[in-house]
Write a protein that binds this DNA or RNA. Sequence first.
DNA 1: GCGATTTAGTTGAACATTCAACCATCCGGA
DNA 2: TCCGGATGGTTGAATGTTCAACTAAATCGC
Lengths: 153, 153
Amino acid sequence: MAVMTRWLDPDEQRTWRAYLTASRVLMDNLDRELQRDAGMPHAYYEILVQLSEAPGRQLRMSQLAQAAGSSRSRLSHAVARLEAAGWVRREDCPTDRRGQIALLTDEGFATLAAAAPGHVEGVRRHLFDALSPAQVDQLRRISETLAEHLTGS
Amino acid sequence: MAVMTRWLDPDEQRTWRAYLTASRVLMDNLDRELQRDAGMPHAYYEILVQLSEAPGRQLRMSQLAQAAGSSRSRLSHAVARLEAAGWVRREDCPTDRRGQIALLTDEGFATLAAAAPGHVEGVRRHLFDALSPAQVDQLRRISETLAEHLTGS
DNA sequence: GCGATTTAGTTGAACATTCAACCATCCGGA
DNA sequence: TCCGGATGGTTGAATGTTCAACTAAATCGC
């Protein structure tokens, strides 16, 4: 017997469309600003942030991929570029000869420190300034629920 | 005088991180499923959807770009591919000789009709199934507020 | 009418991402 | 100890996206 599609009801439709538009434009704006001000896309910024917060400003490639929400392949390519830019360096892992350690250089840290204020300002301006405190709270709960739902399954 | 950065407070930090994770994983999942089941990325699916809902299943390139939330350049490249796949056709605009009209072919419509149930099922499974009705309502309001804020400025 | 500006759309190059294939090393068990 | 699978990571090719430059046609101002 054919399984019937559970189509979206009008409310869900509206929600999904609005969500698509909002998230697309939000990320487009942040990406464009970051590219203009710091010379890197948001995904690369995320990599530098994760490294900067790790102990010793270094992480195994796999852990970094996990932390930055990137595939291993994508991270390999990205780190190759970041290394060429002088912002990241790679070292062999002493305990696992397959492993590579990515580590944030001083230059990379300085670049990140220079880019952060503008980026945070952008996040505030584009996102938080538009929402009430209650809405920020709702968005947090929704996002946490969703993140759990999506990564837990 | 130097302008102080308005850093994010801990609640905002948490919200922003959770949002980034949730929206990234959500879109990654939908994109992967659509690529696997329909042979196209989500952005291309959006283009076909917009065309399918337009009167006569056709739109001027600019209007289509606007509707699908795409840059004009991106749309040009995308439509070139969709045309090669036989899903879209281009025609000259009769009232403006600079203009081009993109129109959904029957084959394109059939492909979309075949892909839609699976995709909607994915949206439901990944997004709506995890949220309470109240949360769906909150997400709608937040997204609409945000979309207005971002496109209005 | 006519030059200046704006609008519509395309193009190619540089860059980013995905996918599958691949090599090397590690680990578990007979 | 050695075999088979799992893990860590990279690579190249195909595909998408961005950016700036470009052509052509419409529109504005006079």
